[in-house]
Design a protein around this nucleic acid. Structure first.
Lengths: 214, 214
DNA sequence: TGCTACTGACTGACCGGTCAGTTACATACG
DNA sequence: CGTATGTAACTGACCGGTCAGTCAGTAGCA
């Protein structure tokens, strides 16, 4: 006999399913406008059932951020740890690729997007995100710079400026494509865009006398 | 006799005052969470009076964006128009200074911040902003690049990448300082930060053989 | 028969928008 | 000069709709 979709036994996967639905609805509507009923329906439950798993709407938001925070930051951290000392230039290219690609994916960028729009209203959540994502990113990025300067392959530039130059293009890309739904003129491939950005950051706009890859 | 603050004759300044209050409350609370009553109180009126000037809460948002959109974009446009053909390097430095400084000022960055958080839920407003701010910015930035390439002082780099590199750091700066209330390590002066960013973008991270300003 | 997972009608708080009434002033009139 | 009348600007109680969170009851299963 076919198991009816409702009233199935509580799978341990339930909280996951709910959070996935919640993320989608929060990103689409914003936390304040999102209706709990809609989250429940999307997760295939009734509103009441949802409250068996989470005590409040805000608890879902917290769980959500705590769960998805750090996935991207950890992958950045790992990438830098592996490649920074070996080949800083490749490490920088790879880092930009990771960031731009992540920001091009609506699914991966959903959590950062949510933080962007809601952080100001949930200071504790913002603090959590700052600690587990922003700070991790910043440490990785400045480690990359430090390693490269140490090796003598990068000039010694300001760390804050460097971080803004590395993170910024990804954010703009996300804002333009996902929030304003504006497509880049031609470069649809995130990898190509990342490479073009890396080219600017590595070699600068002012041409060189020496022989160059350009 | 002292004129009581309420019941004063309708000054033509009223709509301005209301919009100013609305901007503050919207930025602080987000559009959905903001209470019309709070906007009214902040503008020194009652809720009812507010509806003599605007037909709805959303109308305030529209008026707000339509009013403040373009101020920054126009100043960028003007700056580039004046300086791009003369001295592209100085033009780029100035552009970054304008952007970083604007993003460091909570008052100036309020409208862009609001768009960042609300654009997704108000597509028409987003379209308006895109047309009057984003497109203007993009045209200016790519004009700057084109003029510099024409003169032979900048390498020919990808326009989309260039735009993301120019705009990105300002956005990150705004997000970090205003939304996450994170202070940069030392560089409190926006001008210095802009210069440090310009240094990276102009000369690149990879050191040059030729003599350099660094 | 009992227990777990779940439902959906319901409650109470909240808030955008309305409107009958009030206030401060202007002008007209005695 | 004081009083009546008019009216623009404004107030705040109220209405109606919405929605987070609750709970009495049901379905499925052992």
């Amino acid at each position: 006999m076919i198991r009816k979709p409702s009233h199935r036994r509580r799978p341990e996967a339930r909280p996951e399913e709910i959070l996935e639905a919640a993320l989608a609805v929060f990103v689409e509507q914003g936390f304040a406008t999102a209706r709990v009923e809609d989250i429940a329906r999307r997760a295939g439950l009734s509103k009441g059932a949802l409250y068996l798993y989470f005590p409040s709407k805000e608890a879902m938001l917290n769980a959500l951020v705590e769960q998805s925070a750090g996935a991207l930051a950890r992958s950045v951290e790992q990438h830098v740890a592996h490649s920074a000392a070996v080949d800083p230039e490749a490490a920088l290219r790879g880092l930009l690729r990771i960031l731009i690609t992540a920001m091009s994916s609506p699914k991966i960028s959903a959590a950062p997007r949510l933080m962007l729009t809601e952080a100001h209203r949930f200071p504790e959540l913002a603090a959590f995100y700052r600690e587990h994502v922003l700070d991790v990113m910043r440490r990785s990025v400045s480690a990359l710079l430090a390693a490269a300067v140490e090796k003598g392959v990068f000039r010694k530039v300001d760390t804050d400026a460097f971080m803004r130059v590395m993170i910024g293009p990804g954010i703009v890309h996300m804002v333009l494509t996902t929030i304003f739904e504006l497509k880049p003129e031609k470069l649809t491939d995130p990898g190509d865009l990342a490479d073009a950005i890396a080219d600017i950051v590595l070699y600068g706009l002012i041409p060189r006398q020496e022989s160059l890859p350009s």
